[in-house]
Amino acid sequence: MKFNKTIAAIMLATSSVAVSAQELDITVTNLTQGMHYTPFIVSAHTADVSLYKLGEAASTELQMMAEGGNIDGLDTMLMAANADIIKNPAAGLLAPSGSFTTTITLSDGNGYLSLASMLLPTNDGFAALNGWKVPTDDAGAYVPGTYKMNLNAYDAGTEANDEIINGAGAPGAAGIPAAPGMNAGSGATGVTTTEANQTIHVHRGNLGDDNLTGGKSDVDNTVHRWLNPVASVTVVVK
C-alpha cells in the first residue's frame, strides 16, 4: 500500500510538472490623472519570496526602487531566488492613464506574482502587488481565468516627504528625482524634514501647493495628487 501511494504521488508530481510551463498575461493600468510610474519589475516566484511587509522597514533593494525607480536591487534579489523576471515591460515610464501588457512564463513552483514601481513625483511612494498566489485547484493546477485587482500607493518610510524636486534618486538622498509630464515646480522650501513612520505604510498622498516657483512643495496640488487605488492589474491565466 505504501508503495502504491508513492507511485500515486509521483504520478501527481509528474502531472503538475506537465502543466507548470504556465503563461500569464499581465496588464497594468495607471489609474491616476497626473502621476507617472518608473519602469516596473514583474516577477513570479515561490511562496517564501516577498518584496516587503507592511509595518516593517524596507529592504535596501525596495528602497532603491521606491526612492529612485532603480529596480536592479530587486532584480538581483529575485534572480537569487530563481524567480521568473520581466524588467521594464512598459519600455520606460508608464504615463497617467496608460497601460501595458506583458506575458510571463512561470517556472515550476513559481506560483506567486509580484510587481512594483515608484510613483513620480514622490519622495518614496510606490505601488506594488506583493506575492499574489495564482489560483490553483485541489490538484495544484493553475485555474484558467481572468483575475482583476486594484493596487494602493505605499510609502517606503525611508525618506522624508519634503516634495522638493532636485533630481535625487539614490537611497538616502533627500528629494524627488523628477516630475515627468506637466507642472514640475522649483524653489520649494520643503514640506517636512522628518518621516514619522519609518516602516512601510499606506502613502498619505502628496500635499503639493499652487506655487510653481516657491512655496513648500515643488509638486502641483491640482496635478500630482491621487486617491487609492492608483493602478489596476489584470492577470489572465490561460
Partner: peptide, 29 residues
C-alpha cells in the same frame, strides 16, 4: 487631459489651493 482616470480628489482652499471655492468638507476619499 481628455482621458478618463481615477479622480485625485479635490484640493480645497483649506489645503492650499488659494483660488478654490471649496472647503475642507468637500474633500472625499
Amino acid at each position: 487631459v481628455d482621458v478618463v482616470s481615477m479622480h485625485a480628489g479635490v484640493v480645497t482652499i483649506d489645503d492650499g489651493l488659494s483660488q478654490s471655492v471649496l472647503t475642507e468638507e468637500h474633500r472625499f476619499d
